[in-house]
Amino acid sequence: MTSPASSSEVKYLIESSEGNTFDVSGAALRQSNTFNAMFLNIGADGPIPFTDYNEATLKKVFEYCEHSVNEENYSGPKHQDDLSKWDLNFFNEMDQKMFIDVINASNFLDIERLTSYCCERIARMLRGKNTQEMIKVITLPTAEELEAKQKVEEKKAAAAKKVAEKAAETAEKTETLEELPVQQLVQTTRNKLTRKYLSFSNE
């Protein structure tokens, strides 16, 4: 973490899956509830590893956050028709793969405003259509794809569980969050999210 004079100008280093690092302002990062839960009060030594996401995706996500720093406080999802020209350009210049990567990253980082705009954009693809037209707009995974997806999720969950158990042991020894290494904090939060996700799966 760099430490300029004013706290509003604090910059954080973000590390992507490629191992590249780049600066993001504290104000932009604070839009991420995941970040707030991990680092807001305790700070971070060294780059913050969001290594499940590539540099292009993370830069796109934080481009949005930097832009919306000066916007008025977020007050719930906006209808797509109410989006500004900047917002529309932001979405329009993404291809589908990037859009999905941005949704996934935004979901992990828990950036409410960006996630809800993405959801609204997907909803707009379906709006005013009958079932036949909706089927043309979306692809449905085959049984094999769904099975493969489930296996990956189960594998991830099992791995996350192991790490979480290990992290819990370490946390007990460490006693305070401040003493946990950054990498482990990220992993702990990721585990929490995994457990949250699994609780939905089991409902």
């Binding site: 589908q96 979901n107 809800s116 997907i122 979306i138 939905f200």
Partner: peptide, 28 residues
Amino acid sequence: SPFPLLRLPRLVLFDVFKSLSIGEKIKL
């Protein structure tokens, strides 16, 4: 190209559902 709706993270998918009207939900 067709959008892989069911590959979205589950909570995001639920938020997409929330954005739809009653009729859109039923048709989907």
